[in-house]
């Protein structure tokens, strides 16, 4: 693992992201995971309904921007996840060096840019 970084992004509610990058010369494997840990408003109430009406964290989605070996700008959008599914991870094989990569976490209403590395 070339680098492993844990970063916290404040979005009103906080989302924790872990991004690892394994980087041999001609291929980059991006592995990301996120958990909507603090989208829960409280431990006992109906957080889903509260979130749906109050803060945009019912659904999250990760996004990676990267440049492939031919210079084409690509975006990998992770599947949308219900917050109560709480975490997911995905590995994307990049055919060229990732010139730029960014994880974006989406609340219900907007993207929040997050500079991963």
């Amino acid at each position: 693992m070339k680098s492993l970084r844990r970063t916290v992004l404040s979005v009103g509610a906080v989302l924790a992201l872990v991004i690892g990058v394994a980087a041999p010369a001609a291929a980059v494997t991006l592995t990301y995971s996120y958990s909507t840990a603090t989208c829960q408003l409280n431990a006992t109430g109906d957080a889903y309904r509260a979130i749906a009406t109050n803060i945009g964290c019912a659904v999250v989605q990760a996004r990676i921007n990267w440049i492939d070996v031919g210079g084409t700008a690509r975006t990998t959008y992770g599947g949308q996840m219900a917050y109560q599914s709480i975490a997911t991870s995905s590995t994307t094989m990049v055919t060229g060096r990732a010139a730029r990569a960014m994880i974006v976490v989406q609340g219900v209403d907007r993207w929040r840019p997050y500079q991963a590395y």
């Binding site: 690509r74 975006t75 959008y77 995905s90």
Partner: peptide
Amino acid sequence: PSTGGIDVGRG
């Protein structure tokens, strides 16, 4: 992607 979601390239 096999893991879900979608990957889009801009030509």
